[in-house]
Design a protein around this nucleic acid. Structure first.
Lengths: 199, 199
DNA sequence: ACGCAATGTAGGCAGTGCCTACTGATGTTG
DNA sequence: CAACATCAGTAGGCACTGCCTACATTGCGT
């Protein structure tokens, strides 16, 4: 089964990930409304019905994209927290900036990640948003341990910070606020946050 | 031109607003993805091409819905600020709660209002989001005058609060956070905010 | 070696957005 | 007040989409 360089083996081999890659590009370049399964199929070189094997409905693809987005966002934030000045305030600031950067670099993806989900019906395992705001919660928790942040439900405090950055990024992404003001807004938000949560 | 009760006058009379009304209902009940111009036309009783006279593109209808949404949201917040205990903190709290209520009662609309706009090309007048966060900014300004909030760019401070509530509502709307936790989250956010912005 | 599940193909259907050409009403003006 | 320009509706067509069903090919486990 040596891979022919010809792109026409009957079985694509990695169709699912190929679709997700193509979808992510399409999403970034043309927005979610323009994202079409048939389009992706053409781009990847399979028939228009092939994607159905991996994503029975269009929304399933979008869900997978959002899921992956949360993973990448969480990782980006974790990295930002890990590298550099270990001062807590500095790390909170870097985490927030990393979030903001991700958001402005992937506006359509963020929109998808924030989109109202259909009924999760039943299980839906766990909202993968956790992956993204976990680093924030962890940061709060550590801050509390070191008496830099007042005691209280750390998950709640982390959520508020996450929501603030998310909201500011949204305002920039939809054009309500000039992009070059984002940094200063994030900065102000972080300072206010730290002041508001000081012991 | 006495109005026949028969629904078949050639000219509808108020097609634009009838479409907007129907669209708002459809949006609330079935989400933006299911909103179809032809569907609305049927519902209102005109031909499938009639809406085009008022909304050349589907997105134009969505824009109008968002615009109207900002108007209503702003009004709701202003009313919440005006009625009740005139204490500043209480008013900030009521404004935030009103925002949250609007958001959870109109999830699809809020999503639309937060959606990434296409190129505003050139003019686009002014982002009508202002109507919604103006009350927050005003509140901050007044707080500064009365030395209850530290000095600084009041628009920036107002934006941060607006973004925080918006972000929290988004987390609830997309199922990341249980709806019954919203109130306490808003409460915590407002308290932190006031603490963080105290003089 | 064989059978079966997984994965891809081909074609069809209803529905959509956008387009053009046409028609009926409105109201402005000479 | 009649002619007419403009506005607001209708009818039909096109390309495209998502979803469906029936069929073909492949690879894998026994």
């Amino acid at each position: 089964m040596d891979a022919q360089t010809d792109r026409h083996r009957y079985h694509h081999g990695g169709l699912r990930t190929a679709l997700l890659d193509a979808a992510e590009r399409s999403l970034r370049e043309r927005g979610v409304a323009q994202l079409s399964l048939r389009d992706l199929a053409r781009e990847v070189g399979v028939s228009h019905a092939a994607p159905r094997r991996h994503f029975p409905e269009r929304q399933d693809l979008l869900d997978a994209l959002a899921e992956a987005g949360f993973g990448r966002l969480g990782e980006a934030i974790r990295h930002a927290v890990a590298d550099g000045d270990p001062d807590l305030a500095a790390r909170v600031s870097r985490a927030s900036s990393a979030f903001a950067r991700f958001a402005t670099e992937n506006p359509a993806l963020l929109e998808l990640m924030n989109a109202t989900k259909h009924q999760p019906e039943k299980t839906e395992l766990t909202s993968s948003v956790e992956k993204a705001f976990e680093p924030f919660v962890d940061l709060i928790h550590e801050g509390q341990d070191r008496r830099l942040i007042h005691s209280g439900p750390h998950e709640e405090i982390g959520l508020v910070l996450y929501a603030t950055i998310n909201g500011l990024a949204t305002l920039v992404n939809n054009g309500s606020v000039d992009a070059d003001r984002l940094e200063e807004l994030i900065d102000a938000a972080v300072r206010q946050f730290l002041r508001g949560t000081a012991p």
